[in-house]
Structures are given as structure tokens and as C-alpha cells.
Design a protein around this nucleic acid. Structure first.
Lengths: 202, 202
DNA sequence: GCTTGATTAGACCGATCGGTCTAGTATAAT
DNA sequence: ATTATACTAGACCGATCGGTCTAATCAAGC
């Protein structure tokens, strides 16, 4: 957490860390306040409810991702298909580092929340879905360029992009169940093998 | 639930339904008892803790799967690669039916639990991992046969089997986030495109 | 009939949950 | 100096959590 952040940001950072490291239901407001060194009064001044905090955490992490190593991985300067490997690598190193610190693989915050709360909270579910949609857009763009450059045979870029993101989430899930980041390294690169053919329009 | 079950089975069935439909943390013992029409005393007579109940639920569902449509899907009489399609189809129809009843896609109980509790409960995590391991064995066998029959080019059957299971989980996750079973139908069949080459031993 | 062990009923426990409320402080505009 | 507003502190709330405990009920064996 390091340098001085104002109260709201400290709450956000604490909640993000705790939600990601454990789960939504398992982390209470009290614990978030303790980690953020903030009192309950301050908390509810900035966030009217736990649900709204969750939304803020999702947006916050989504932004960090989008401007952080996702942006790096999907850098237009890289050959399109290499971006996928870059992305897998980034996820691998990230999860590995997290495990070294916490002892457990936290997995993907969005995937975690999606499975945990999307049957109970339609609003959060929709927000998470939007995050996935946006992420799959990156894959989509990369695939389109790969096709245009002739790096891969034509395929249904939209569907394949979604499938690739789903695969990445699945690999992270599996790695978390094994508590072993190496799973990401060994299974991850196969993301490039996934293909959904263009729908036959005759 | 239907026909008379003895107390323990009623508890198990109720817990399974509730855990699957919502989440582990969100469902309390009281609610399980209410659905099972059982009192707390009886509950704790059969299950010493919620954690142990969770394990029993996992085992119970794992058995049902293994002897139910997973056994059907991976029937040795089917051509190996067709088993994968069968499996995807089964998941699709199951989730669709569940959504029609409950209004929401429950996803995969094992995947849900894996992401929710595996950072908190090492014992449950290990159990879930064993379930995944067993399931990936089915894929493995099918792939080995497919290679032997010349239906597909040789590949790392072990790693690819795991990757395929991970993909399936990822697709279910994505479908749950969208609350749309059709995702399974459109992305699922691409499971057959996943390939991990045999490690180059020179 | 009596005893025993398995099962059920449900009151009860301390802890914790998300959230509210009031009192007070800090800051800045007037 | 006064007043409005933003923020902080933390006691407090009813509800619910997982789990315990005692008393009652039941069927089987003797």
C-alpha cells in the first residue's frame, strides 16, 4: 500500500486486496476498515453499501488492468498472436508472485466474483460481464489483425476471441484449484490453438 | 427431491441444491435444514460441521456425475472425439434446464466452489482438485484412443486433456457471467480444436 | 417392561454480519 | 467570528452466523 493515499483510495485498495485474496462474502466491512486504517463512519461516508464498494473495486481493477499489463500485452507493435503469449505470461508471473507472497493463488478477481455473486446480484453480474466483454475485445482485435496479416487462417474472430478469454479463465481456475501457477505456463500457450470457424453462409 | 429419503440424504440433497444455486458462504445451515425439513439437532447429528457437509456434497455430486451423464458422454462405444461433443451438449442442456427453473445459470458446482473457497480451505481445495483430476482422466482416455485410432494427430494427451477440461470450466464461467447457456453451445464445440503438442525430446 | 443407543426437536450461545446514528473535528467560505 | 460542509470516530442495532446442549422420542434387544 505504501505511500499516502486519501481515505477513499485506501478503502478501495484494501477491499480489492481482500476480495481478491479471499472472497466477497468472506471479507467484512470491519476487516476492510482495519486494513485501510479507517473507521466505519468514514467507510460509509464514501461507500453507501458493500455492493457499491464491490462495483468500485471492479471498476478500479478493470482500469488498472486496461492501462497496465493488458495494454502492454496487446501492444499493437507486437505481432498479433504473440500478444496472446504475452498475456498468458503476464498472468503467470502475476499469479506466481501473488502465491509467493500469500501462499495461495488468488486467481482472477473477475472470475472469482463472477462465480461467487452472479447468481445473487444481477447488477454486479452485469458489470463483470461488461469487463469480460471489453477484455474479449482485445483478443478480437488481435485476431482480426492476425487474419489480415495472414498469420492464421480465417476464422470467426468474434467467437474465437471469447473462447480464448474463456480458456484463460478456465486455466486460471484450474491453476487455483491446484494452487499451482505452473499450470498457467503449461496450459496457457495452447490458447493459440483454439479455433472457431466462420459460420457457413451458403 | 420427490420421494422419501432418509434424513441424511435429504440434508445432502438440500445442501447440494443450495450450494450449487447460490454459493457456499451465502447458504446457512438453517436454510439447509429448512429445505430438508430437518432440525438443527438432526443436522449436527449427521454432519459435525459445514465444512464436512461441503465435502460430502462434493463427493455426492461427483459420484452422480461419474455414474450419470459423464459416464454416458464418455461411453467407449462412441468415437472418442464425439464424446467431447456429447459432454458439451450435456452441460448445455443441463445448464439451460437449470436456468429455466431458477432463472439463473448455476454453473459448475466444482468450479464455483474452487474459486470461492480454495483460498480459505485447503482440505476442500484438495478434494475439488481430485474431482478435476478424475474428470480430466476421462478426457485423457478419449484422447489416447483418438490418437491410436488415427482420428487426430498425435499430441500431449495428458496436458491437452487438462486443457480441455479447463476450457469447459472457462466456458461455463463465461456463460454464467452472461447468464446465457447459449454461450456453451456456441463456444463449447471448439474444445476439440485445443492442442498441446508433445514435448520435444531430442 | 426396561434399557439402550440412535435420532429428533428446538432453545440457546457468543461472535460477527452489514448498516445506522450521533457526536465531534477539520476546512474553507463568508 | 460564524456558519456550512466534508469527513472521522466509534458506539450501537437487529439479524444472522456456525455450532452446542438438553430433553424428548423412537425402535430394537432383552
Amino acid at each position: 500500500m505504501g505511500i499516502e493515499l486519501d481515505t477513499k483510495d485506501r478503502i478501495l485498495a484494501a477491499a480489492r486486496e481482500l476480495f481478491h485474496g479471499r472472497s466477497y462474502a468472506d471479507v467484512g466491512i470491519k476487516e476492510i476498515c482495519a486494513l485501510a486504517k479507517v473507521q466505519k463512519g468514514s467507510f460509509y461516508h464514501f461507500f453507501p453499501s458493500k455492493q457499491i464498494l464491490a462495483m468500485a473495486v471492479i471498476d478500479n481493477m478493470s482500469d488498472d488492468w486496461a492501462n497496465g499489463f493488458v495494454a502492454e500485452a496487446f501492444d499493437e507493435k507486437l505481432p498479433p498472436m504473440e500478444r496472446l503469449d504475452y498475456m498468458v505470461d503476464a498472468v503467470y508471473y502475476w499469479q506466481k508472485a501473488a502465491k509467493n507472497v500469500e501462499g495461495r493463488m488468488p486467481g482472477c478477481l473477475f472470475g472469482n466474483l463472477a462465480l461467487e455473486v452472479s447468481t445473487r446480484d444481477e447488477v454486479i453480474r452485469a458489470r463483470l460481464n461488461a469487463v469480460f466483454e471489453k477484455a474479449s475485445g482485445r483478443f478480437h482485435k488481435a485476431l482480426e489483425q492476425a487474419v489480415n496479416l495472414g498469420d492464421i487462417l480465417p476464422l470467426d474472430t468474434q467467437a474465437t476471441a471469447t473462447a480464448m478469454l474463456a480458456y484463460l479463465e478456465g486455466v486460471i481456475l484450474f491453476a487455483k484449484a491446484r494452487n499451482d501457477p505452473e499450470v498457467i505456463r503449461s496450459l496457457g500457450p495452447a490458447i493459440k490453438s483454439i479455433r472457431i470457424e466462420v459460420k457457413h453462409t451458403s
